[in-house]
Computed example of a mutant assay.
Amino acid sequence: MTDPTSIVAIASSLIAAIAITAAAGLKGWQGWLEIKRMELSSGRADATMPQAGNRIELADLKERVRKLEAIAAGIDL
């Protein structure tokens, strides 16, 4: 296993595997960035700001979670 041919073959295989992994990761990153660009251009990214109805629903959910946590902790409300 110490002959130079096998060492070069293993090294080149490792470099090829790293290059393929990096290329796949870069392609995925570029796809994610493209999705974010499309969200920004369509105005969909502004949907993260809750509207009045959504805020009320969120407050109700938080209250339910608080009550469930109190029940789980054994605290009487």
Rank of each mutant, 00 (worst) to 15 (best):
Met1Phe: 10
Thr2Tyr: 04
Thr2His: 14
Asp3Met: 05
Pro4Trp: 01
Thr5Cys: 05
Thr5Leu: 12
Thr5Ala: 13
Thr5Arg: 13
Ser6Gly: 03
Ile7Glu: 06
Ile7Arg: 04
Val8Pro: 00
Val8Gln: 08
Ala9Gln: 13
Ala9Lys: 08
Ala9Arg: 11
Ala9Ile: 05
Ile10Phe: 02
Ala11Tyr: 11
Ala11Asp: 12
Ser12Ala: 10
Ser12Thr: 07
Ser13Cys: 03
Ser13Leu: 06
Leu14Ser: 14
Leu14Gln: 15
Leu14Thr: 08
Ile15His: 07
Ala16Gln: 06
Ala16Met: 04
Ala16Ser: 13
Ala17Gly: 06
Ile18Gln: 15
Ile18Leu: 15
Ile18Gly: 06
Ala19Met: 09
Ala19Ser: 12
Ala19Pro: 00
Ile20Arg: 09
Ile20Gln: 08
Ile20Cys: 03
Thr21Trp: 11
Thr21Arg: 06
Thr21His: 10
Ala23Pro: 00
Ala23His: 08
Ala24Thr: 03
Ala24Glu: 04
Ala24Asn: 10
Gly25Val: 01
Gly25His: 02
Gly25Thr: 01
Leu26Gln: 13
Leu26Cys: 08
Leu26Tyr: 12
Lys27Val: 10
Gly28Thr: 04
Trp29Thr: 05
Trp29Phe: 14
Gln30Tyr: 10
Gly31Tyr: 01
Gly31Thr: 02
Gly31Met: 02
Trp32Leu: 07
Trp32Asn: 12
Trp32Val: 06
Trp32Tyr: 12
Leu33Gly: 00
Leu33Arg: 11
Glu34Cys: 02
Ile35Asp: 04
Ile35Ala: 07
Ile35Trp: 04
Arg37Val: 08
Arg37Gln: 14
Arg37Ala: 15
Met38Arg: 15
Met38Trp: 11
Glu39Ser: 03
Ser41Glu: 15
Ser42Thr: 15
Ser42Gln: 14
Ser42Cys: 10
Gly43Arg: 13
Gly43Asn: 13
Gly43Ile: 02
Gly43Gln: 06
Arg44Cys: 01
Ala45Gln: 15
Ala45Pro: 01
Ala45Ile: 04
Asp46Met: 15
Asp46Cys: 04
Thr48Ala: 15
Thr48Asn: 04
Met49Pro: 00
Pro50Tyr: 00
Pro50Gln: 01
Ala52Lys: 12
Gly53Arg: 05
Gly53His: 03
Gly53Lys: 02
Arg55Glu: 03
Arg55Ser: 05
Ile56Met: 07
Ile56Lys: 14
Glu57Arg: 15
Leu58His: 09
Leu58Met: 06
Leu58Tyr: 02
Leu58Phe: 13
Asp60Asn: 13
Asp60Pro: 00
Asp60Cys: 05
Asp60Val: 05
Leu61His: 05
Leu61Asn: 09
Leu61Trp: 03
Leu61Asp: 04
Leu61Tyr: 05
Lys62Met: 08
Glu63Trp: 10
Arg64Asp: 09
Val65His: 01
Val65Gln: 13
Val65Tyr: 02
Arg66Asp: 08
Arg66Ala: 12
Arg66Phe: 03
Lys67Val: 09
Lys67Gly: 02
Leu68His: 07
Leu68Glu: 09
Glu69Leu: 05
Glu69Gly: 06
Ala70Gly: 11
Ile71His: 07
Ala72His: 07
Ala72Cys: 02
Ala72Trp: 03
Ala72Leu: 09
Ala72Val: 07
Gly74Ala: 08
Ile75Met: 11
Ile75Pro: 00
Asp76Leu: 13
Leu77Pro: 06
Leu77Gln: 07
